Computed example of a mutant assay.
Amino acid sequence: MLYWWSKFVLLGPLLRLFCRPTIEGVGNVPERGGAILASNHLAVVDSFFLPLLVPRRITFLAKREYFIQPGLVGRMKKMFFSGVGQVPIDRSGGSAAQAAMDTAVRLLREDKLLGIYPEGTRSPDGRLYKGKTGIARMTLEAAVPVIPVAMIGTDKVNPIGSRMWRPRKVHIKIGEPLDFSRYSGMAGDRFIERSMTDEIMYALMELSGQTYVDMYAASVKERAAKAKLADPQESSADGHSGDGLPKARAS
Rank of each mutant, 00 (worst) to 15 (best):
Trp4Ile: 14
Lys7Val: 03
Phe8Arg: 12
Phe8Leu: 13
Phe8Trp: 14
Val9Gly: 00
Val9Asp: 04
Leu11Pro: 02
Leu11Lys: 05
Arg16Gly: 02
Arg16Phe: 12
Phe18Trp: 09
Pro21Ser: 03
Thr22Trp: 13
Val26Met: 15
Ile36Asp: 00
Leu37Glu: 06
Ser39Leu: 15
Ser39Asn: 11
Asp46His: 07
Ser47Gln: 03
Phe48Arg: 08
Phe49Asn: 09
Leu52Pro: 01
Lys63Tyr: 12
Tyr66Lys: 08
Gln69Leu: 15
Pro70Asn: 11
Val73Ile: 14
Gly74Pro: 10
Arg75Trp: 12
Met76Arg: 02
Lys77His: 11
Met79Asn: 06
Phe80Leu: 14
Phe81Ser: 02
Gly83His: 09
Val84Leu: 12
Arg91Cys: 13
Ala96Pro: 00
Ala99Cys: 06
Thr103His: 01
Ala104Gln: 02
Ala104Gly: 05
Arg122Phe: 08
Ile135Gly: 00
Ala136Tyr: 07
Met138Gly: 04
Ala142Leu: 12
Pro145Glu: 10
Ile152Trp: 07
Gly161Lys: 12
Arg163Ala: 11
Met164Arg: 12
Gly175Glu: 06
Gly175Val: 07
Pro177Cys: 11
Asp179Val: 01
Asp179Glu: 10
Phe180His: 03
Asp189Arg: 01
Asp189Glu: 02
Glu193Met: 09
Glu193Gly: 04
Arg194Phe: 07
Met196Asp: 05
Asp198Glu: 13
Met201Lys: 02
Leu204Val: 04
Met205Tyr: 05
Glu206Tyr: 07
Leu207Gly: 03
Ser208Arg: 09
Ser219Lys: 12
Lys221Val: 14
Lys226His: 11
Lys226Ala: 12
Ala230Trp: 07
Ser236Ala: 11
Ser236Val: 09
Ser241Cys: 13
Gly244His: 09
Leu245Pro: 00
Ala250Ser: 14
Ala250Val: 14
Ala250Tyr: 14
Ser251Pro: 15
